[in-house]
C-alpha cells in the first residue's frame, strides 16, 4: 500500500533544516499503525508527505503502486480526494458550513449531485451518532463531536487510507478513548489502513504497530 524508500526532506526557509534523513517504511493494506516520536522529530512532515500535501526532496514514495512524485496539483488533488482521508488535531472543519455540509464537501469535488451527497453525508453522520447535529455549525459542537464530523468527512469518499495527525491531541482523555475506539472499529470493519501520528503512548498502545521516529530516522518498528 505505502512504500517509502530513503525519503529525505529539508526545510529551507532561512536556516536549512534536514527533517527527514532517509525514511524507509512499508505499510500494508489494512494495517493499524501509529507513528511516535518527540515533538519536532518530523512526524507531521512524514504524514504530510504520505498525504501528498507536501513534497519530498529525494527517495521514492509509492502509493498503491503509483509513484508519487512531481504530480501536478490537479493530480494530487484527485489522489487526495479519492484515496486519502485526513483527520487533524484541530479538526479543520469549515466554520461557516454546517456539520452535514462539511461532510458533503469531498463529494462535491467529485461532482456528486447535491441530493445524493446530502443523503450519504447524513448516513455517515448517523453512523457516528451525530444525526441531530447535522445542521449545527462547528462552533456549536464539542471537540469530540467536531472530530467525529471530521472522521465522517474523511470516510465519505471510501478512502483506502486514513491519515490522522494527533487526532486526540485536543480532546480530553475520555473522548480520546472513544475516538480511538472508533478508528479501531473502522479499521476492523471497513479494512481501512490507518496511520496515526501521536506522542501519546496510551494512544499508540491501542494500535497494532508502533513506529518510533527520532531525529529524522525510524529507530524502532
Amino acid at each position: 500500500m505505502i512504500e517509502l524508500k530513503d525519503i529525505n526532506k529539508t526545510y529551507n526557509n532561512g536556516q536549512p533544516l534536514h527533517v527527514l534523513k532517509g525514511i524507509d517504511l512499508n505499510i500494508e493494506q489494512g494495517e493499524f499503525v501509529s507513528i511516535m516520536g518527540a515533538s519536532g522529530s518530523g512526524k507531521s512532515t512524514l504524514l504530510n508527505i504520505l498525504g501528498i500535501l507536501d513534497n519530498y526532496d529525494s527517495g521514492t514514495y509509492h502509493l498503491n503502486g503509483t509513484l508519487i512524485k512531481n504530480l501536478t496539483e490537479k493530480q494530487a488533488a484527485a489522489y487526495r480526494n479519492r484515496m486519502i482521508g485526513f483527520i487533524f488535531q484541530s479538526f479543520n472543519l469549515i466554520s461557516f458550513k454546517t456539520a452535514v455540509e462539511n461532510v458533503e464537501l469531498p463529494l462535491f469535488y467529485q461532482g456528486v449531485p447535491r441530493r445524493k451527497r446530502h443523503e450519504l453525508a447524513m448516513q455517515y453522520l448517523e453512523k457516528l451518532g451525530l444525526r441531530d447535529w447535522a445542521q449545527h455549525y462547528p462552533n456549536e459542537m464539542s471537540g469530540g463531536q467536531k472530530q467525529r464530523v471530521a472522521i465522517a468527512r474523511a470516510l465519505i469518499t471510501h478512502p483506502q487510507i486514513i491519515l490522522a495527525d494527533e487526532p486526540t491531541g485536543a480532546l480530553d482523555s475520555k473522548t480520546s478513548k472513544e475516538v480511538m475506539a472508533l478508528l479501531k472499529e473502522l479499521n476492523r470493519t471497513e479494512k481501512i489502513t490507518m496511520v496515526i501520528v501521536t506522542h501519546d503512548s496510551g494512544v499508540a498502545a491501542q494500535t497494532d504497530r508502533r513506529i518510533h521516529i527520532s531525529d529524522g530516522l525510524i529507530v524502532n518498528d
Binding site: 500535501l53 488533488a77 487526495r80 480526494n81 485526513f86 469535488y109 469518499t157
Partner: peptide, 15 residues
C-alpha cells in the same frame, strides 16, 4: 486556511 482544507479534501486548483 479554508482553501487549504478544501485542497486537502480534494479541491483542484481549478475549483
Amino acid at each position: 486556511h479554508e482553501f487549504g482544507i478544501r485542497k486537502a479534501i480534494g479541491a483542484a486548483p481549478g475549483d
